[in-house]
Computed example of a mutant assay.
Amino acid sequence: MNLINGYDPDTLREVVDPSACTERLDDLGVLRSLPALLERVWLLKVLGDLDEALEVSEQSVRVARMAGTRKDLLRARILHASVQQYRGQYAVAEQELLTCAEEAEGQEWWAVAAFAQQHLGRAYFETEDYSDARTAFKRALFLRQQAGTPDDQLESTLLAIDAADRRRVEASVAS
C-alpha cells in the first residue's frame, strides 16, 4: 500500500492521507519487529507526532544494533536522522546522514546510500542551502540509477533537483 500521494513542492515533504496513515499505524499496533518499528517511525513523522517518532526511532536503532544487520542499522539511523531534521535539528541530522551515505557507498549498498543522500538533500533544502541540496539530490539520482531503480520511481528525486534549481535561481535573483 502506497501512502504517499506526492511531494509538497515548497518543502519536498511527503503529502499523505492522514486517515490512511493513522489506520496503518493502528494496524501495526505494538509490533516490535524492526520493519514494524521503522514503519511506525515514518508514519509518526509524516503525521507530525515528532516526539513519539523520535522515541520509536531511537528504539529502532537499538533493535537494529542488537539484532539487525549493518544495512538494517544504517536504515534505522537514516530514519532517525530524518526525524531530527523534521524537528529542526539540522546540523545533527546532516552529519548523521552524511556519515550513513558514506558508509553505505563504501559497502556498495547503492539504494541505502541513495536513501541517505535524498534525506540529506532535503535537510539542506530546508536550511536554504540549495547548492548542497542539489548536489545531494544529484548524488541520490546517480545512486538510484546505480541500484537499478526503475525510471518511474526516480520522480521524487527529479522533482527535488528541479526544486533546488528553482530555489537557487530565485535566491540569486533576489540578492
Rank of each mutant, 00 (worst) to 15 (best):
R166D: 05
L37F: 00
I4G: 05
T135Y: 03
Y86K: 07
E94L: 14
G88K: 10
L79Q: 15
D49P: 13
A104V: 00
R167Q: 12
D27P: 07
A64N: 10
A160I: 00
A174V: 12
M1K: 15
D8N: 12
S131P: 08
G48T: 10
L143M: 06
A147T: 05
L73D: 01
H80R: 14
A53M: 14
G6R: 03
L159A: 09
V92Y: 11
W42C: 05
Q107G: 10
K45V: 07
W109G: 06
S57D: 07
L141C: 03
A171F: 10
L47E: 08
Y130N: 10
R166M: 03
T157G: 04
L38N: 15
E52G: 06
P35S: 07
D165S: 11
W109R: 03
A164P: 04
N5Y: 01
A104H: 01
A91D: 13
L98K: 03
L44A: 06
S156K: 06
L37D: 08
S60K: 02
E58R: 09
R62G: 02
V92R: 15
W109Q: 06
E103K: 09
V92S: 14
F142E: 11
T135G: 04
D10N: 12
D8M: 08
E128C: 14
M1P: 15
G48L: 04
V16M: 08
